[in-house]
């Protein structure tokens, strides 16, 4: 069963088609990348998949479940985890509290008023593990607002992982990063590849071609090609529509 299937997904803003009948799949263990020029509608698409933006037409299935009408938090509970292009963190919290918040989102009984959240050793351990995976163990108690941009991006990924996801949507995880920071994230993504089905929206061509099993090219809300990285590189239409401008 595919981890993600969208069928003819549409979103209009006024008269503009931001998402134009997008159909794509992410297979189990696959890293499917979406590339496209600025304004191609990549973040809109991610928003529709996560449920933050209501689709006008079409359907989304996650692990075989039709989530088209499902609110955001229920999709997340199904195992759909996302990161944001512009970091969305609880800035006043510590790094560990942010991840703990993510861990607790998977807890069966989080509606508890009594015990101290920090006394839940199992949850704290999971949170610590997620931070360790992204190499932030030394930053447990750092207030998130004081972290470097790259660290905040890593924290985004740690939070997504802490929800024990069954599908990862990564919205430009390399955005605004220095070379060194990018290298760290790319090797992190390599280690995640195969363990989770991943839909990766990314601007960095080199990274995409190095990581992806399949690449879809989104232009003006429409997917003009989906193929292996090598074939995408050769695709004349893609070169004309997109790579030409970049190179």
């Amino acid at each position: 069963m595919s981890a993600l299937v969208t069928h003819a997904l549409v979103k209009r803003f006024g008269g503009v088609l931001a998402t134009d009948h997008v159909s794509l799949t992410v297979e189990p263990g696959e890293l499917h990348a979406i590339i496209g020029p600025n304004g191609a509608g990549k973040s809109t698409l991610i928003g529709q998949l996560a449920g933050e933006i209501a689709s006008d037409e079409g359907s989304v299935r996650v692990l075989g479940v039709d989530v088209s009408r499902m609110p955001t938090h229920q999709r997340a509970q199904l195992g759909l985890a996302r990161t944001y292009q512009v970091t969305q963190l609880a800035k006043e919290f510590t790094a560990l509290d942010n991840v703990l918040l993510a861990v607790n989102a998977r807890a069966a009984h989080n509606f508890r008023f009594w015990g101290n959240a920090h006394d839940d050793d199992a949850a704290m351990q999971k949170a610590a593990t997620a931070l360790a995976i992204v190499g932030m163990s030394h930053l447990h108690h750092a207030e998130v607002g004081t972290l470097a941009h790259g660290e905040q991006r890593q924290l985004e990924i740690a939070m997504a992982l802490a929800t024990e996801p069954k599908l990862l949507l990564l919205d430009e995880p390399l955005a605004g990063m220095s070379q060194g920071e990018s290298a760290a994230i790319i090797s992190l993504l390599k280690s995640l590849k195969g363990r989770y089905p991943i839909l990766l929206v990314e601007h960095d061509m080199e990274a995409v071609f190095a990581l992806a099993d399949r690449v879809s090219v989104l232009v003006y809300g429409r997917i003009i090609a989906t193929d292996t990285p090598d074939r995408i590189r050769e695709n004349a239409e893609v070169r004309a529509a997109y790579l030409g401008d970049e190179a």
Binding site: A50, E52, T72, H73, Q74, A76, Q77, A81, R82, Y84, Q88, L89, A90, K91, E92, F93, L101, A102, N104, A105, R106, N110, M159, T163
Partner: peptide, 13 residues
Amino acid sequence: SNPRRATALGHPI
């Protein structure tokens, strides 16, 4: 702090 993030994590805020 960030209701959008809390929702995206799966909390019915």
